[in-house]
Design a protein around this nucleic acid. Structure first.
Lengths: 250, 250
DNA sequence: ACTAATTTGTCCGTATGTATG
DNA sequence: GCATACATACGGACAAATTAG
């Protein structure tokens, strides 16, 4: 019959065990953001490992965005609040090494944005709706102030929507993917010939979406948002890949 | 008038400069997966830093999933092909430190899965449709083989769909979020009272989705898939949060 | 199958610049 | 300003692991 199913024992490095313990303490809530880790010298005593091992562990924890250590700080490494920086980093590398096309990224934004809008249209509070209204008002005011200000106002609107969706994961992924897309085509947008017309069209689209959300028509608002994003970005996407974006329109 | 706008010079650590250079080489294609980095001693000469610095840099690169080094390997660290491991890691920490609810994760799956299905229904090739058919056939065959085998067949179906969507980003995010959700409720599913009935219902749902895709009706297939996932997971979600899932149903 | 050479993992000691009280 | 403790970075050392011959 079957004997006991032994698992192969991977040789786990000392620094990994240090990482695991600190990680569990942070994710388990024993260590909260703002709190300090013991100093490196103290850690090498507690874990009974060398200084180098402690330092390699801290480097990994820092790369994962969990702690930050500064030279000379007598308080030891600081436990950081969650930031999407690590997620942002891995998605950016994903985009580069897997050669994600702009079309794929925009498509992903269309999916996330329209989903957030659908959810927000149905779950929003009145206060959140008011925030969206003032965000669109901010976009109208920013047309004169130039393209950078307009971009910020636009981002502010989508942030309110994302928060109103009630889903933090959608919110964070939207933020990450949006920044990647904007970085990819920042120059092209700045060089667009008729920027003001584009801004005014974008405002009209946002107003339509907002009206649908105010009316509680989630599917309509979502459909409009996909169309708006398609119109805004299609020009920057190679013609051959535009059909994959149109597959999301109805 | 304005003088030159000097930016504050952040003190960038030595190991970070090493990380940046290697990272650029990998993401720029100078170093391809399977290739080897020089040995640590060679690297300390090329970068003219100490070995500790080289090692800290390698630890960071390893945490980002770009390289792997094994003790005693005379060939130096290996450049790895992209893997979603780093993305998986940061999403898992996100789920834990931000206390993402199961509802949020399932909601995200509903969004991604139905979007992939919508895209696949419109962009699939005939060969991919055949793969989906055989994947569902595999699910039917796996009912007898127990719940683990059924789970694998189910995953296989959704993988084919994700590939057929033509969007690698959606595909990878689906994979990551699915594994997190499954890990969260693996025990609960295994302990479900009428597992076989659930499996048969799941198969019926998949067949309906597949029929809609075969007919080219993307919106219907997407709607059915959201409903199917809601029915499958709603029981594991606290009642108070189910309404946020229903907000995605029409 | 065994040895030799090289590499990584880990440890220790030391020097230097920095932040805090 | 000063003293202390800290992180950063360097260099040397040894054991365990891997590969080549």
């Amino acid at each position: 019959m079957d004997g006991p199913r032994f698992e192969p024992v991977r040789a786990v490095r000392a620094y990994e065990r240090v990482v695991e313990q600190v990680e569990e303490a942070i994710e388990g809530g024993t260590l909260s953001p703002g709190q300090r880790l013991p100093s490196e010298r103290e850690l090498m005593v507690q874990f009974s490992v060398s200084r180098s091992t402690v330092r390699e562990a801290l480097r990994v924890l820092q790369a994962r965005g969990l702690v930050r250590s500064r030279p000379g700080d007598p308080n030891g490494a600081e436990v950081l609040p969650f930031s999407p920086a690590a997620l942002h980093k891995s998605m950016t590398t994903l985009a580069r090494v897997e050669e994600l096309s702009l079309a794929e990224l925009v498509q992903f934004r269309m999916v996330l944005d329209s989903s957030a809008i659908l959810l927000a249209a149905r779950l929003r509070t009145d206060a959140q709706l008011a925030d969206m209204e003032s965000a669109v008002a901010g976009m109208r005011a920013a047309v004169e102030a130039g393209h950078d200000a307009f971009g910020e106002a636009d981002v502010a609107f989508h942030d309110v929507v994302a928060r109103s969706s009630g889903n933090k994961l959608i919110q964070i992924c939207m933020d990450v993917v949006r920044s990647i897309v904007l970085k990819l085509i920042a120059e092209k947008i700045a060089d667009a010939p008729d920027r003001e017309a584009l801004m005014r069209q974008s405002i009209r689209h946002h107003e339509e979406v907002l009206a649908a959300m105010r009316a509680g028509d989630g599917p309509l608002a979502a459909r409009l948002s996909r169309k708006a994003m398609y119109d805004y970005y299609a020009g920057y996407v190679p013609a051959a890949e535009r059909s994959s974006l149109r597959a999301l329109l109805d």
